[in-house]
Every structure is written in C-alpha cells, then in structure tokens.
Design a protein around this nucleic acid. Sequence first.
DNA 1: CTGAAAGCGCTAACAA
DNA 2: TTGTTAGCGCTTTCAG
Lengths: 335, 335
Amino acid sequence: MALTMSDVARAAGVSVMTVSNVLNDRPRVGAATRERVLAVVAELGYEIDLTARRLRTGRTGTVALVVPRFDHQYYAELAALLATAFAENGHHLVVEQSNASRENELAAVSPARLRFYDGIVLSAVGLTAEDVTHLRGEVPLVLLGEQDLPEVVDHVMMANAEGARLATEHLLERGSRRIAVLGGARVGDVAGGIGPQRTAGWRAAHRARGLEPPEELVAPVSDHGSGGARGATTELFRRYPDVDAVFAVTDQLAVGALAALHDLGRRVPEEVRVIGFDNLDLLAQVPPGLSTVDPSNAWIVEQTVELLERRIADPAAPAVLRESPVRVVARGSTD
Amino acid sequence: MALTMSDVARAAGVSVMTVSNVLNDRPRVGAATRERVLAVVAELGYEIDLTARRLRTGRTGTVALVVPRFDHQYYAELAALLATAFAENGHHLVVEQSNASRENELAAVSPARLRFYDGIVLSAVGLTAEDVTHLRGEVPLVLLGEQDLPEVVDHVMMANAEGARLATEHLLERGSRRIAVLGGARVGDVAGGIGPQRTAGWRAAHRARGLEPPEELVAPVSDHGSGGARGATTELFRRYPDVDAVFAVTDQLAVGALAALHDLGRRVPEEVRVIGFDNLDLLAQVPPGLSTVDPSNAWIVEQTVELLERRIADPAAPAVLRESPVRVVARGSTD
DNA sequence: CTGAAAGCGCTAACAA
DNA sequence: TTGTTAGCGCTTTCAG
C-alpha cells in the first residue's frame, strides 16, 4: 500500500494539514516544522496523491494534446515542441490520438475526459462548425488545424493560402509553367481544410502573373500517406507528361511524388521540380533536399501555449484566431 | 458546474447507489429501474467522474506509453500501433515524453504519476540496471528498448545482433566488402543499447564468412538525428573513400547517409549500398527505397499489450524477456 | 432488488 | 503557527 499524508503526519508528529501546507509551499508553517516534515517525506519516500488533490481542487497540472495520428511526422514534431513549451509553464503534457474521427475528437473534450486535464489542445480535423459552437466555454481549449471553424474558440492556424501562393510563385519564378497540385481540391469541392485552402493559393499565384491556373493538374489524393501520393503522381504523369513541377500540399505527399518520379525516371529538379508544405525535420535531409513551406511551428507553439494558459486563467477571455507566418525554404528539389 | 451522480439519482427518483450499479453494469438492478436511470443519464448528458472513481477503486482505464521523444518516427509509429491494440482491450492510451533522461523516466514510473494510470509502457534509454531492480514490483510496467537490463521486469526487445547480422550478410552477399557501421560502437565502448548490439551483429556476419571485421569503418555518431549522420558519413568517406556499403544502425541515420552520399556525388546503390534498421513507414517511399531491417513492430506491440494486461491482472507473475523476430526488407538502396 | 453509511486522500475554511 | 471539521464524487459494505 502506498503512503498517505497521515502516515507522514504521524511520523513527523504533526497534523495532516501541516504536511499539506509544507508540501504546497504555503507560508504559515514554522521553519523547524517544515524541516522536520520534509525530512520525513524524504526518508519515507512519500509522494502526494495527485488524484486525491485533483478531486479536491479540480487542478491536475497536466494538459493534453489530441492529434489525429501519432505517426504523422507533423504532429510528432509539434508534440515535441509543445511538451517543452508547456514544461516551461509548469504544465506536464500528455498526447492522445483521435484517429481523425469526429467522435473521438468530441470524446477528447468531453467533461469526463477533461477532468484529467487543466486544458486541451485539439488538433481538429473531424470537428464540424456546429460541434465547435456547442463546445463554447465548456473547457479550456485551443484549437489547432486548418479547418474553417467559427471564431468562438481560440484557434491557431497556418497562413495556408499565402504559403501555397508563395510555393507556387517560387516555382513560376524558376520557370515552371505546368505546375500540378498534389492533394489539391477541385473547384466545387467542399471548402476548408488544407486541400482547398492551399489550392486557392496555387490559383492566386497563377492569376497574379496573368496565367490561368491549369485546373486539370489538380490531383486529389484518397489518403494522406505517401503511398497514395505515389500512385496519384504516377497517374498524373501518365495523363499529363508535360507537368514540370509538383506542389504537394504536405511534405508527406511530396515524398510520394519523389518516389513516383524516381520510378518514372524523371529527374528532380532537372526535369520536374517538387515542393512540399510543413518543413518536416526528417525530410530536410532526404536527397535532393525537399523544398517546402515553413509554417513556423515554433510560433504556432508559442501562441498555443500562451492562449491556453490565458484561457485556463480566464475562461471568459474573448476567443481569438491567430495565423502563423509562412515562408518558402528552398532546397535541392527546386534548384 | 458538472453533473454528479446525485443529480441523476434525484432526477430518476432513485438512490445514488442504484445509479452507480446501473452505470457499472452490476446485475442486481431491476430492468425498469435500469431503463429509467439510463434515460435520465442520456437526457442530462451525465458523464461519470473518473477521478472520483479512481480515488475509490484505484483503476483509471488508462495506460501510458513513455517515449524518449515524440518526434522520432520509430516511437511515433509504435505509439500509433499501441493505441489501437490497447483500445481493443478497453484501455485508453496516452503518450508522454521523457526527453531520454533518466530522471524523467524514473519520474514517469513514480507512484505519484502512476496513480493516473493502470499501467505503464516505458521505452527506456536512460534507466540503469540499478534503477530497474528498485522498480521491481512497484508498478504494472513493461519495458521496451534495447538496453541490457536485469530480468526483473517484463521487457520486450528486438533481436538486435541478429538483425544487424542479417543486414550485413545481405550486403556481403551482394558483393560489398568495405561495409561501414554508421552509429556503431567501437570495441571497448560501453556495452548495451543499439550501437554495441548491432555492431556485434555486423562483426558476427563478417566472421561467419571468415572475414575480419574492418574496425576502422565503425563510425559512431554524436546524436541520433539525421544531421549528425550526414556529417559523420561525409567524414567517413573522406578518410575511407573505398567504403562500398553503409549499415546504419537506424533508418534515421540511414537518411543522413543518403544525404551525404548525394552531396558527395556517390550513387546509391551502384557505388555504395545503404541499409538501415527499423523499417519506418515514412522512409519506405524515399527514393531509391531504403533497404532496412524490419523489427516486427506488430509483434512487439502484441507482446507488450499481452504482458501489461497480464501484469495488471496479476502483479506477481514472473518477469519475462521477449525478443522480436527480425528480417531484412530489400529495397532499391541495396539493389 | 434497493438504499444508507462510511471513507478513498486530499485541501478550504475556520478555530484554537 | 497549527489543528479540526467537512466534503470533493464515487464505490464498498451491509442492512432493509
């Protein structure tokens, strides 16, 4: 059986309350008493029961990050950054997986689950606008993700269209004229999310130069893994052999494009330029070096922590939407 | 304020105890009463307070996985598999990060933290043999990782030496004779962990063919990111331009090797073959396709879940060590 | 089959 | 400065 506070109190010859006061650094405890209690705590190896404290105070010292998948490199890198940032604020971070399902995302912010945490950062992909309005005020929550959602909850997102515009402009500037959008959304597809927003940027870059965006080169993917992208790219080049650049809406898709181009014997960047979006650390090294759009993860993390800590402190604070700055990182794949 | 059980009890005109019985599927409740309670629960949207239950019963329904880093693809893929497997056993998985520090690994299995969880899967890299013996029996725990640790705690690991031997044999068989070990450990370095174990397999493969392992081609790395590997590989080829194959002790290091070889203008696999270890999904696609050793993650996950569930049920069960089967996955980088 | 009492380990509020 | 009382929301035990 684990030790309790009264074991410590008995051993130290004080009351339970005094032990509690010492352990919580509350001021009205004599120095000698404090010493004694701490000595006993150390000797016995007592550790406070956070469950009991939580039941009493409602605070846990822990915040959760809910991501669609653990094994998507983008979320993994985000989680690592958030863990460090929250640690600096005295919050412990745990990560849960929603499997990108609306049900799991809702469950993650349910009162039952929330009681484990002081706040939640939810990287949402399945949540609807309707769901979000019902969430309003229930829980200290910061939304992450590229969905268009009602501005009733704090939300940090990327400048998606702008990033896509910059990437496309980068390709146009180097002379590419038949630029495909891998993972793009066709005109009339549902709006919101990365596909549509980034495709909009691709269109904008063309129009800014007086060019008509080649809509036939919008190549949707069925899943966001690299495997699907490989197939989609192969098919794309079969139909349109004159494609001279691929803007993949994520780095993960870009990897699939690189694989397909290798299969097809098309050289990158000499024959086809490739650029991604996300600036994943792991892919910075992959030959010939993947050009990409950097979404400023450090900035995103900084804002997220600030907003969540603020909301924990003041649940009534007005909801804000913040958009991270983006920039192109040019590497070998667009030389 | 959130609803409590007595709110439900009052609304349903029964006692708190009856609500508890219904919600826990305990048998001695009349069908009509059960119906009524469930109806009220649904109508009010009541959710049980797991914190309070845990204080009373000691069970939380949650298990934790502690990994050194969220952003190492290997752990990310492992976490995703474990989440699914535990979900099938009615356990919710959360993931925490230890930053590969001994202190954090110990904190993660402390009684205080453990009280949040029914059990812990600890992917250990900093824990010492001494630490592990003190852990014995304190908590439902399964260790993961390639350290040599006392067999007093359930431990699932890979067949490291065997995998390395197979990878090296695969290279020898294709004609490579100057095979470097990137991330290897020199003779006399501390034993245990992936570097030494996998380097031992590289030696064994050479000796099995009557060849003396070229110890000068053992290339340690300072960090396990791809960046360090890139530098180490460049340096390696500067000193030993005749190296004709690289066995990287992890896929992540192999990516760095590929980058360096690209920088140096050495073609893979024509001039230099490259093989990794871990079989990361993300890298399966990277051109020319990274050959690797598959550590059977599905098997590892299956064993881990089985052992942890067993230990939760029976804390006194004898500790076991299980070693996952390995096999070479040949792709373009060793063609 | 249902309910009342007690208490898990802690801390807020107040009393000494 | 320290101790006492009460109770967070639930479940165990035992009585009805």
